[in-house]
């Protein structure tokens, strides 16, 4: 355990007899980490455990060297933007961010400066003095983000942060996460929308029915799945001839021509060897290859292979 990582050491959480998460061992480093899994898989439980909102039934958690129940020190460095779309009643966006900054023990002037800065970052300056009750869902999501980020945390934990945001706001928020992660800080995001996760994550943690079923960079996780040969898609006008050549490669286990006759899809047991052999083939023969790449190396495909279709992840 170091003071620069987030560590789950054999953590289990049961709600009575219902399993929340079981035997979780994790070490999370800086960058954007996504918790991926269908509803009810245990993503929020992991986040709530990290922030002390719930206690583990067994095991230990350390966040940058602090235990989750050490609120006084932990939340100087950590912020958690929960999935709850709820706020203290009657507050304006400005009052909301300002009031909870005051609980950090900052001076009034410092609170004012940080509140304005955080609200500006999420693009709500014009609406800052309106009651949150009158905000749209997207605005509420953004003011929660502002509140979470206002004290410049090292670890930002966000439960379904893109929910309710329109495409433009999503792009802006993702950009914001990227800029935070680029400063060697931690951004931990939960999502069940896999293509979004794929776009923004440095690493993923896949959760299903309370178990962590895979973790790491998507490419690495995919490469380790021996039982599912990696699928490649090649677009090329001489597809038939190319297919004949590819079939001679030992590691190619399946090949199919595209219906338009201008491409092939194949599966290889060893992607590294495939890349090497494919490059060799291209240097020997003059094929007009328009595109080539893996077609099932995204989070969606990996997740589907790992849990089948039962997970229901979108």
């Amino acid at each position: 355990m170091t003071n620069q990582t987030i560590v789950f050491d054999d953590v289990s959480k049961f709600y009575g007899e219902v399993l929340g998460v079981n035997r979780v061992h994790l070490e999370i480093h800086s960058g954007i980490t996504s918790l991926v899994g269908p509803n009810g898989s245990g993503k929020t439980t992991l986040m709530n455990l990290m922030t002390g909102l719930i206690q583990p039934t067994q095991g230990q958690i350390h966040i940058l060297g602090h235990e989750p129940n050490d609120a006084e020190n932990l939340f100087k460095k950590v912020a958690y933007c929960t999935q709850y779309d709820s706020f203290p009643r009657g507050m304006t966006g400005y009052q909301f961010v300002y009031t909870f900054l005051q609980l950090h023990g900052l001076t009034d002037a410092e609170c004012e400066r940080r509140t304005k800065e955080a609200i500006h970052k999420v693009g709500l300056t014009d609406a800052a003095h309106r009651k949150i009750d009158a905000y749209s869902k997207g605005m509420r999501q953004r003011i929660k983000l502002a509140q979470a980020m206002a004290h410049d945390p090292q670890v930002l934990i966000l439960d379904e942060p893109l929910n309710g945001l329109d495409p433009m706001a999503r792009a802006e928020v993702i950009e914001l996460f990227r800029s935070i992660a680029d400063q060697e800080l931690f951004v931990i995001i939960s999502s069940h929308i896999l293509h979004e996760v794929d776009m923004i994550s440095d690493q993923v943690i896949m959760v299903n029915q309370g178990y962590v079923i895979a973790e790491g960079q998507i490419h690495d996780v995919r490469t380790e799945m021996d039982e599912h040969p990696i699928q490649f898609k090649i677009r090329c006008p001489e597809a038939r001839q190319l297919a004949m050549k590819l079939l001679q490669m030992e590691h190619v286990v399946e090949i199919a021509l595209h219906p338009d006759g201008n491409g092939v899809s194949l599966r290889s047991k060893d992607s590294e060897v495939f890349y090497r052999d494919f490059n060799a083939l291209m240097s020997e023969a003059d094929y007009q290859v328009e595109s080539m790449g893996p077609s099932d190396e995204d989070v969606n495909a990996v997740y589907e292979y790992l849990i089948g279709n039962s997970g229901g992840a979108a």
Partner: peptide
Amino acid sequence: ADMLDKSLHYFFLSPIRR
């Protein structure tokens, strides 16, 4: 009231001892 409003977590997630 904070529990009913679902806003108690904002206090629990602040750097203040319970």
